[in-house]
Amino acid sequence: MSGSHRKTVLKVIILGDSGVGKTSLMQQFINGKFSQQYKATIGADFLPKDMIIDDRQATMQIWDTAGQERFQSLGVAFYRGSDCCVLVYDVTNTKSFENLQSWRDEFLIQANIKDPDNFPFVVIGNKIDVKENKRLISSKKAQSLCNSLGNLPYFETSAKEAVNVEQAFDVVARNALQQEESADFNDDYTDAVNIHVDGDNYNSCAC
C-alpha cells in the first residue's frame, strides 16, 4: 500500500421493526456468531469491519439501531453520512414487512439524503430458518415490493444459521462503495473527512 493511500469508510445503517433481527444480522456478519441473548437495542451502536472489495480496502461501519418508533428521533444524530441503508423485516411478521416503506422514508428524511432516487438500499427478509408454515411473507410478495420501491436488491437470510448473510452484505458493501465514490465526486468539500492511516499520525489530523 502506498504511503498516502486513503482507507475508505463505508457507513451502513440497519433499520427495521423491533425484534426482526438487526443486531443478530450485524453480529453474524461482523463476528460470525449468533446468540439468543441479545437484548433490545437502545440508542445506537456500531461495529467496524475491514473488507477488501475488488482490491479496494474499506472499513464498513455497521450501525445498529433501536426498533421502537419513539427512539427513531435519535436517528438524526446517527444517520448522517450514511452510504447505504439496510431495511430488515421478519418473514414471520407481516407488520414488519408493511413498515418497510415507512422506514425507508423516515431514513431519507432524517439522513438528509440529497438524491433519494439513487441512494442505495438493500432489503433483507430475515428468519428464513423458521418452519415453512410460520412464514407469512412469500419471496414473491417481497420481491414485488422491492421492485416497486425502485428495484431494491432483496435477500432472504437467517442470521441464526448464517444463511445468505455474507452475500447480502457483500452487495451492501459494493453499493455503499459506489455511493461513497459518487458522493466524494459530487461534493468534495462537505463531510468527507478522510483520515490517513499511513503511520501513527492520526492524532495530528484535523477534526
Binding site: T59, V76, G81, A192, V193, I195, Y202
Partner: peptide, 19 residues
Amino acid sequence: GLASITKIAKDTVNNTVNN
C-alpha cells in the same frame, strides 16, 4: 478502530433545519 473512521457529519442538525 478509530484510525479508519471517517465521514463525520458536521452541522448535522443545522443542515436539516436549513434544508
